Computed example of a mutant assay.
Amino acid sequence: MDLTIRKNGTIPFTKGDPRFFTGNVIIEQVHDSEEPSRVTSAIVTFEPGARTNWHYHPLGQLLIVIYGTGLIQTWGNPPRKIKAGDVIWTPPNVKHWHGATATTGMTHIAIQEKLNGKTAEWLEKVSDKEYEEAQSASE
């Protein structure tokens, strides 16, 4: 087997599914491995105010923020502001959400592994009230 090179401009992108995201989100699926590898990765762009639902990853997730400013929050903990250049590791099975601030977009590279074919377990939406409280707490 040889290298696989996906040329710039050939990676398809989709809008974030409203069942899992609030607001405008664009996902570029950079890599979706085949067995025996489990690694997947995507470039995810959140417009201001956009965010994920609460969710967790069975094998954890690595985020590399490459543009803008965003927020991330784990269940039961205060939100944290994240900026371009930050690298965030969320351990396996930790309930969390992430997205842009209300006034600034944010793009990150997301890297995670599949367990039994799934990279995430999607949960309830982050309510507008929760999001507004996160905005206030992170300032």
Rank of each mutant, 00 (worst) to 15 (best):
V44G: 00
E34C: 15
W54M: 05
I27P: 02
H57N: 11
A42F: 11
Q29A: 10
E28R: 06
T40G: 02
S41Q: 10
E28H: 12
P48V: 10
V39P: 08
E28C: 08
E35I: 07
S33T: 12
Y56W: 13
G60I: 08
R51V: 00
I43R: 09
R38T: 15
V39R: 05
S33E: 15
E47A: 01
F46H: 03
G60V: 07
F46V: 07
T45H: 15
I43P: 00
N53H: 14
A42N: 12
P36Q: 10
G60S: 04
P48N: 07
T52L: 14
H55C: 05
E47I: 10
W54F: 06
L62N: 10
L59V: 02
Q61G: 04
G49E: 11
N53T: 10
W54V: 02
I64Y: 06
S41P: 06
G60P: 02
Q61M: 08
A42C: 13
G60E: 10
W54P: 02
H31G: 05
E35F: 08
P48A: 03
L62F: 15
E34I: 15
H57P: 09
N53A: 05
H55A: 06
G49Q: 13
S33I: 14
A50V: 12
E47L: 11
T52Q: 01
P58Q: 06
A50K: 06
E47N: 06
L62D: 05
W54N: 03
Y56L: 10
E35M: 04
T52A: 00
P58D: 13
V39K: 08
V65T: 09
T40H: 04
A50Y: 07
R38P: 05
T40F: 10
T45V: 09
V39Y: 07
F46C: 02
P36S: 03
I43K: 05
R38L: 12
G49V: 11
P36R: 09
I26S: 03
A42P: 05
Q29R: 12
L59T: 01
Y56E: 15
L59Y: 12
R51W: 13
I26V: 12
I43W: 13
S41E: 12
T52N: 00
A50T: 14
V44P: 04
V44H: 11
I64Q: 08
Q29M: 09
A50I: 11
A42Y: 06
S37I: 10
V65H: 03
T52M: 06
T40E: 06
E35N: 06
A50S: 13
I26W: 15
L59H: 01
E47D: 13
Y56S: 01
S41G: 10
N53K: 05
T40C: 10
